[in-house]
């Protein structure tokens, strides 16, 4: 029998996943189930929604209500699910390309509405599923099949983008720091509003190979060496922070939630003459 956690929350008959050896997506998927376990959520009251991509295959392995939708549109489906069933805990899993390229508009507007969805973006800095094209998260000068001489676009900062667009809970973890992902997902689920957790993942097969980042272990080591917690960063100089990235809670600023505001309108209109 697999571990109790895997037995309880995964469709173990479909394991191991289709993902490549050392793909960070499996680590992050597990970290999400640990958050659900620690919160003691009823599996029937959880719905996991995804778009299209390697990352979006995660719900296929998870034993909850799950929906695998279309590329970039997971948040549109999730918005419908949440409005129709406000009591469900809706968790959305997307890739960096899925969420910020084709799905960019859905993303900023879900943030702006502050609808109670907990979104985890598996950021591996590339389009994994389709063979390594660059995404809006590919760092400048890195390579992809569509940027053989290096990508000249500047990448988004997913967390800044979400904060600016109005998400009320924002944080970042990595596959190396899986425990950080778990605690952020927990707080994200508890936040009554739109929560965005960026989980940095390694794609050794395309991003790693194209950019000579080594294998799965090297990619995890890179995360370990370059992530700085928010608390540690507060004591560091800009020079010391050069080339590093922050992990931990980046924003926690509750505001009125969308489905609750919507219900207020319904309640107000009930009994009125119009």
């Amino acid at each position: 029998m697999p571990s109790q956690l895997v037995d309880k929350y995964f469709r173990a008959e479909d394991l191991p996943q289709i993902w490549c050896p050392g793909c960070g997506h499996g680590i992050i998927t597990r970290a999400i189930t640990v958050a659900i376990e620690q919160l003691g959520l009823e599996p029937d009251k959880v719905c996991v929604v995804s778009g299209i991509g390697c990352s979006s295959r995660a719900p296929g392995y998870l034993d909850f209500n799950t929906l695998h939708t279309t590329h970039g549109r997971a948040l549109a489906f999730a918005t419908g699910i949440k409005l129709a069933n406000p009591d469900l805990k809706v968790i959305v899993i997307m890739g960096d390309g899925d969420s910020t390229a084709i799905g960019g508009n859905h993303f900023i507007h879900a943030c702006r509405r502050n609808i109670d969805l907990t979104t985890i973006i598996f950021n591996n800095n590339i389009y994994g599923m389709t063979g390594g094209q660059y995404s809006p998260l590919t760092p400048k000068f890195d390579k992809g099949t569509t940027a053989p001489y290096g990508n000249i676009d500047r990448p988004f900062d997913i967390c800044d983008l979400a904060s600016g667009a109005g998400a009320t809970y924002v944080g970042r973890g990595t596959s190396y720091h899986a425990n950080v992902v778990t605690s952020l997902v927990k707080k994200g689920i508890m936040n009554d509003g739109f929560s965005l957790i960026e989980a940095i993942s390694g794609c050794p097969t395309y991003y790693g190979r194209k950019n000579k980042k080594g294998g799965p272990v090297d990619m995890m080591q890179w995360q370990k060496d370059n992530a700085v917690t928010v608390t540690a960063a507060a004591k560091m100089t800009p020079e010391q922070l050069e080339g590093k990235f922050l992990i931990g809670e980046l924003k926690n600023k509750p505001e009125p939630e969308y489905t609750k505001e919507y219900q207020k309108i319904i309640d107000n209109l009930k009994g009125s003459d119009i």
């Binding site: 995964f10 793909c23 997506h25 190396y176």
Partner: peptide, 12 residues
């Protein structure tokens, strides 16, 4: 090892 195994192949 359990925390970071992408394939849940090892656990305590």
């Amino acid at each position: 090892c359990e925390l970071r195994c992408p394939d849940y192949a090892i656990y305590v």
